[in-house]
Design a protein around this nucleic acid. Structure first.
Lengths: 218, 218
DNA sequence: CGGTGCTTTGAACACTCTCAACCGCCGTGG
DNA sequence: CCACGGCGGTTGAGAGTGTTCAAAGCACCG
């Protein structure tokens, strides 16, 4: 099974042209940054293996997790507006990353309409993902947020051919809390509560979803 | 002073080609939808005069305001990912809207590199705006959220040549609350509090910022 | 083994929500 | 012309959810 980083939905004849752009995989060790907020924006990335978190660093030092990227997902679009990355991207585990030079990609998009569409959809997709996270942060209770997060990760795992029900979630409780707008203690308490109710089975970072419908019912 | 809907930063020689695409202004009355969540996505829009709110409608009927668009700002990108609008856009006052057929715009972007850049920046911009709203929802107190919102609107007014300090904010308290992830009562209380502390002077929908630094200091 | 970092759990507190009453404005209709 | 009803906004009191602070447990790694 080949590692197709980005070209889902691209017609077969155009794939080689995209692949020609991809610079060899870059490795990032757990805790290292692929790029930092303020870095110049030159490349888009796709996670080949592993996972990363993206975050904004506030002026007063506070930081907020803005997203989680799993294997197969795209990364780096936070730099398009200003040529400077708005986020930092930090590996949650040792990971390997495909690099796509943005300038070359732009040129390709001008020639190949399907490629242009693909890029637009990618941008739009991330836009929509953020919108749904705004919904989570704006109108769900803490318990609902945690449930929504678990279901989201579960679904994204599924989309990439892995298990619906069991996955490694390499974020710390603090990262999850930051992403969900609650404290790490609340995250921990809620996971324990879910466990007691037989909704999930969490052994540290390994999460098994026992009752997916129960979670969906909030 | 001409009404330039979108082409800020576009070289002079390319502007006519963009303008050729713009379909005449469409009028939307207060309370009417420019488009609804689920509608087919065909056009991008730019607010010529007036203002609109964008919102997501949850399956259980709950709705959340996702954004405010003032005169001069772009609208409609929530449909790019899926060809169907994710948001609804509703006029907060009688407004007039420029329409840009997306298909034609895409074609133009293939020919004109600066236009492609411009569209990407537009997308990236909205992405970043949402990210900063996630920050607001995820880590600010209610008071900080309201202050951040007022400052944001103030700045966006300024960017378009209007007053820093005084503007009509046509959202209801409920809309503001929904956008900020708090209740309308909390919004109202906090505005009153700001008024008592001589930070703002709010007469219904007309907001005057008295002490902008005081607001920035939270 | 002993440390360090992450997680869990508890208890008190604070902030925001909920529910409710009241006010002022505006358009409608008697 | 005034009364009425509806809508949006303000304000209060009490309730509830999530936070804060603190302590203890656990796991990984030198």
């Amino acid at each position: 099974m080949r590692h197709l980083c980005m070209p889902q939905g691209l017609p077969a004849e155009d794939v080689p042209r995209l692949e020609a752009l991809i610079c060899g995989a870059r490795r990032v060790r757990r805790g290292e940054a692929l790029y930092r907020s303020g870095d110049r924006f030159d490349n888009l990335y796709a996670v080949r293996t592993g996972s990363l978190k993206t975050m904004i660093v506030h002026r007063d030092g506070r930081e907020q997790i803005t997203g989680l990227r799993l294997a197969g997902e795209a990364l780096g679009l936070d730099g398009i507006a200003t040529d400077v990355h708005a986020f930092s991207a930090v590996a949650l585990e040792d990971s390997s990353i495909c690099t796509l030079p943005y300038g070359a990609l732009k040129r390709l998009c001008r020639e190949v309409g399907t490629m242009q569409d693909r890029l637009h959809r990618l941008l739009g997709d991330q836009f929509n993902q953020e919108a749904s996270q705004m919904m989570v942060l704006g109108s769900l209770s803490a318990e609902e947020r945690v449930a929504a997060f678990l279901l989201d990760v579960s679904e994204r795992n599924w989309e990439r051919g892995y298990s619906h029900a069991e996955f490694h979630l390499r974020m710390s409780r603090e990262d999850m809390g930051s992403y969900l707008g609650i404290t790490l203690e609340t995250v921990s308490r809620i996971l324990s509560r879910f466990q007691k109710r037989n909704l999930i089975d969490a052994r540290g970072k390994l999460i098994r979803i026992v009752d997916i419908d129960g979670l969906k019912d909030l």
